[in-house]
């Protein structure tokens, strides 16, 4: 139960917290929408409907649509392995999962550039097969996969460790096949945490700038995602355009927060 809020000191602290939140969080968010609509609704729609921006929206959504399911599968598989089995290198694996979080996204992008770029480790070989990974959509998907890999696994590992494997053993002893056990017992037990991880993965996949900017090449209308498009528009002094594009990302962020809040409540 929260303590009573009578003392003057407590009130001052609360007021300070609210003020800081207002200045650093609410005002910038409001400003995005204010600037996006500065020249009216028509200009906003026109900017959004601009082909390059529309393509950026499409590419961002495409990336998320690929990355979220892939990383859900990866997250479940990893959490399963770590929470259910004891194998040599298990502790190392738990740390390895965290690498995308501890490494700057720019570094992640650069790693992929070194791997798949023209002068990279695998680039020339792939090139000789006619496959170009860098500065194309696959590169964007690959780095997005990398930077969002930990979200689902991190949500699931502690939960699956806490739940233990008794439910699954019970299902197996009742005659369920491994797949039935997973579908009817494991998945329902982890569903809220899984969705929560997916929501976080989605938010990061859509908002990722650093890693994507290194590998995408920022070709307008081809390899530009929304965050990159916003920067481009801003550098073109198209403030309304930049903020209009930014408002879509901000909306996604707000929707993510609402979803996250609902999922957290449901998980309890």
């Amino acid at each position: 139960m929260p303590a009573a809020t009578d003392g003057l000191g407590a009130r001052l602290l609360i007021a300070a917290a609210l003020l800081i939140a207002l200045v650093t969080l609410v005002v910038p968010l409001a400003l995005i929408f204010a600037s996006a609509f500065a020249e009216g609704w028509a200009a906003y729609v026109a900017n959004i409907m601009q082909p390059d921006t529309l393509h950026a929206v499409f590419l961002t959504v495409l990336t998320a649509v690929i990355v979220v399911p892939v990383n859900m599968v990866f997250g479940i598989a990893t959490a399963w392995a770590v929470a259910r089995y004891d194998f040599p290198g298990r502790k190392l694996m738990i740390s390895l999962i965290e690498i995308p979080f501890s490494v700057s996204p720019i570094v992640a992008g650069t790693i992929y550039l070194f791997l798949y770029g023209q002068q990279g480790l695998l680039g020339p070989t792939l090139q000789s097969w006619g496959v170009q990974v860098m500065f194309s959509v696959p590169a964007i998907v690959l780095v997005s996969l990398f930077v969002t890999a930990p979200f689902v696994a991190r949500e699931l590992i502690p939960l699956m460790q806490a739940q233990g494997s008794e439910d699954e053993e019970a299902a197996l002893s009742l005659g369920a096949s491994p797949w039935q056990t997973f579908r009817l017992v494991t998945l329902p037990n982890i569903r809220w945490a899984l969705l929560y991880g997916a929501v976080l993965t989605n938010a990061r996949a859509m908002g990722e700038f650093g890693a994507v900017s290194v590998v995408s090449g920022s070709i307008r209308g081809q390899t530009n995602t929304l965050p990159l498009q916003i920067e481009l528009l801003f550098n073109d002094f198209n403030v309304v355009g930049a903020f209009a594009a930014a408002s879509t990302l901000a909306l996604i962020a707000v929707a993510t927060l609402v979803l996250k809040f609902l999922l957290e409540r449901h998980a309890q």
């Binding site: 053993e169 002893s173 329902p188």
Partner: peptide, 19 residues
């Protein structure tokens, strides 16, 4: 396998499917 043995197993902490 456990499923092939047709053995009823009751776990110490019940392991009921909570959903």
């Amino acid at each position: 396998s456990a499923g092939e043995r047709r053995i009823g197993f009751v776990f110490q902490h019940y392991a009921l499917f909570r959903h």
